[in-house]
Design a protein around this nucleic acid. Structure first.
Lengths: 128, 128
DNA sequence: TTTCGTTATGTTCGCGCGGAAATATCGTGT
DNA sequence: ACACGATATTTCCGCGCGAACATAACGAAA
């Protein structure tokens, strides 16, 4: 969830990465954050609210992910004392873990190139 | 230009990455490919056609990039024998070079995590 | 059995993004 | 002077994506 950033002398750059498997099957920052927030909150709707995303969109993303992996990444239940809830499956936790690890690695090991590009940026001050 | 791919046992995954500097200032696969094609073709419109992008969009992206870096990345000229043209500046070439290097590094060094996630994918065969 | 909060699902609407097309501009050849 | 080909810039339009709204289903606890 915490944005992966690398700091140059002054400007900051955030490295976002996305794994594309083909034909709408992909995972990026949005789905990763959603997974993490579902794990934290135990609810799809709460996760959506936390990242300022409509429940429907959050639910659709979950549906997509559940369909693209061998096993569901989120197990949801409705009804019950608190109305229902959702939890990460083992598969979901693994996906998230590997994605975060990949993020960290890229941010760390790519620091030189990122710094090189950042150094070429403009003032970034009054640029409306 | 060539998509960065890593191969698992069966499925393929393409790793796309984007550097976000803030407020619409960013660079990703689209702008990188555009830069590369401009360098190859010597023309904004030709580059746009080559990647199936409208001239307007290509031109807007170039304008954005020229504004966000300390120095322009593309120098364009109109008129002349062949009607005009566009070339990468030194800055543009550097940006592209570093971006490609970053791509390669991430794809190489992140191979383990990418493979781990890819291994969790579904059949990918009849999934409409 | 009533309540309650969540999951699950459909429908409608607005608007921004991008594509297409039209037009102007420029500078070197011929 | 004229033609050519690419840049530069505007206007118009459609369409898709997501927001917002509306319901239904659900199941444990009180």
């Amino acid at each position: 969830m915490t944005p992966i950033e690398t700091e140059g002398s002054t400007a900051r750059a955030e490295l976002r990465l996305r794994l594309v498997f083909g034909e709408g099957a992909m995972i990026g920052p949005g789905k990763a954050d959603l997974l993490e927030l579902i794990a934290q909150t135990g609810s799809i709707s709460a996760a959506g609210r936390a990242m300022n995303m409509s429940y429907k969109r959050a639910w659709m993303l979950v549906e997509t992910m559940n369909a693209m992996f061998r096993a569901p990444v989120v197990q949801s239940a409705r009804g019950g004392a608190k109305g229902g809830g959702a939890v990460l499956t083992e598969t979901g936790a693994e996906v998230l873990r590997h994605y975060r690890a990949l993020e960290r690695r890229c941010a760390d090991l790519g620091g030189a190139e990122i710094a090189a590009i950042t150094a070429l940026l403009g003032d970034m001050s009054d640029e409306k």
